[in-house]
Design a binder for these strands. Sequence first.
DNA 1: CCACAATATGAAATCGTTTTCATATTCATA
DNA 2: TATGAATATGAAAACGATTTCATATTGTGG
Lengths: 326, 326
Amino acid sequence: MTISDIAKMAGVSSSAVSRYLNNGYVSAKKKEKIKAVIDKTGYVPSRQARMLRTKRTKVVGVIIPKIDSDSISRIVAGISEQLLEDDYQLLLTNTENDYKNELKYLKVFRQDFVDGVILLATAITNEHKKLIKSLKIPVVAIGQKVDFISSIYHDDYGAAYAMTEKVIEKGHRDIAFIGVPEWDVALGINRLNGFKDCLKDNNVPFHPEWNLTGMFDMESGFDNTKKLMEMDKRPEAIFCVTDTIAMGAIHCLNKLQIKIPDDVAVCGIGNGRTATVMEPPLTTVDYFYKSSGIEGAKMLLEKIERPKSPLMSTMLGFELIERESL
Amino acid sequence: MTISDIAKMAGVSSSAVSRYLNNGYVSAKKKEKIKAVIDKTGYVPSRQARMLRTKRTKVVGVIIPKIDSDSISRIVAGISEQLLEDDYQLLLTNTENDYKNELKYLKVFRQDFVDGVILLATAITNEHKKLIKSLKIPVVAIGQKVDFISSIYHDDYGAAYAMTEKVIEKGHRDIAFIGVPEWDVALGINRLNGFKDCLKDNNVPFHPEWNLTGMFDMESGFDNTKKLMEMDKRPEAIFCVTDTIAMGAIHCLNKLQIKIPDDVAVCGIGNGRTATVMEPPLTTVDYFYKSSGIEGAKMLLEKIERPKSPLMSTMLGFELIERESL
DNA sequence: CCACAATATGAAATCGTTTTCATATTCATA
DNA sequence: TATGAATATGAAAACGATTTCATATTGTGG
């Protein structure tokens, strides 16, 4: 079934059918005829032919480092929801945390296969920058503030600051920090700075020997907590830069029979779905991940529809969620 | 940059360039020339034009009920990994647990936009069947055994049976079951049957009043456990049909200060990532979700390459993981 | 009722590939 | 060295839509 088959059956030209499909000038009489034929045949225009001609695919590429992560899957859920609404489709590419794959997919997208790209990157290198600038399609970043493209990100500094304030408020002064490498600016630098600045503003000493760094997984939380607990002087509270790390930390403390929060308090950031069922439930901050996905998608779609629309960055707020681990 | 630009620059016909790109007959001399021009210009053939001509997109559609779920995101991770390897791309559609969206996406895919579909459905209705049969592209199901298409699924019956055996082995005879509705055949029927049959084979009574049903979330685990604990006679063990439910159950018992596993034992199925950090760590069965994603993708790709290849169903095994909740 | 804009129409060009077709050249084998 | 198969080549058709172009018809305000 092609457009000209339909045209023939309806006794009109294929231009007329095309115009019918795209709301162009068609007389009421013809509209009716065409509609009848299409209804009868169940004709659906070929997407590829349309793509070739219009240069638009109605597909958005999404590059993520890892699908099986709580925060990322929630962001993707948000993106997906918004795209569904606007009749776009979601092409997912998973870099498996491999930085090279990120560049690879950006290159794939350089070919005109998607109308825009959403990048959930942990680090934006110069290579990224060059590549992105070479794309003819809009790119939006989620989770990191990027200066040369529109982005939507979380108030990492503010959240860490607020959480630290809460820790201090609870009476703790010996506070350890389990973080991640600096190449992840949002988590590795901004959150750490929020923590440090808050300590300083409250005249609470910062202990470099309690400032540990690891990967993004539960093991890091477990291992680093163990390290902390083996030290001559133990901290009274552990600030974990993510919930995943905090979950590892809590598990470790439980195993060592150290009471939470009485002996050692723990907090995280991100409000992972399972944070509530930890023993004790984890005090953390909620980041509205799904919303950031929705907003990111909206931002991109706007950029696709109106390429001239200005670059912008939106920072999403957060909400401190007090449970029992602090 | 089009293929004929390249052809002109290399002093050959566009057919030659096309053949070069598709490993057709091209003399060594021309190959060299063409390669030089392509390298210099960075030419990449238009995907849409190629699609239009070849009727193949190198894209696989994946329909999932929900992205932010542990098991599903792991399956998707597996699919993604395999597709990456074979140079296919992944078009993700999220039905948000809405059955109508599932049908809607199948219809979208009926248009020739993807080369194949992987369906992670919880229930296959007659409507599904009809729609799937009307597709001209192969469909593979993951997670449920489906008789009219290739599928890859887990040994739900066997896993539940084995786990129940383990529960009995631990000396429990009063065993409750928190399940899900029957429209999910794998979880709602097969696992329940494995449980029941094992009880029968071991002469352990089945208590209908302890057989509760809820949704797939932690709340169901929490609420139903609470219900069980408020009964006149409490069970000694709770068999949760998923880890998510088990996590809710453990949380509830902890809150009620009921000792696990001494007062009440708990087990789940699925080996969710966070099962290990529960207090106590959850005894469960591992399902190799990622592998099922990989195998499912392989199955589909095979079907795409060789449409005549036979229908087949693969059942993946499981591994019982003993931790401390049982 | 004239002029000019808005609406309506189909033929043909176009998007950028792959594939078919017709033909030419090379290669191996009898 | 004759012959058929394998290799090589470019012109042109094909894929299935949208868009341009040229032209016809209708509507509207003065």
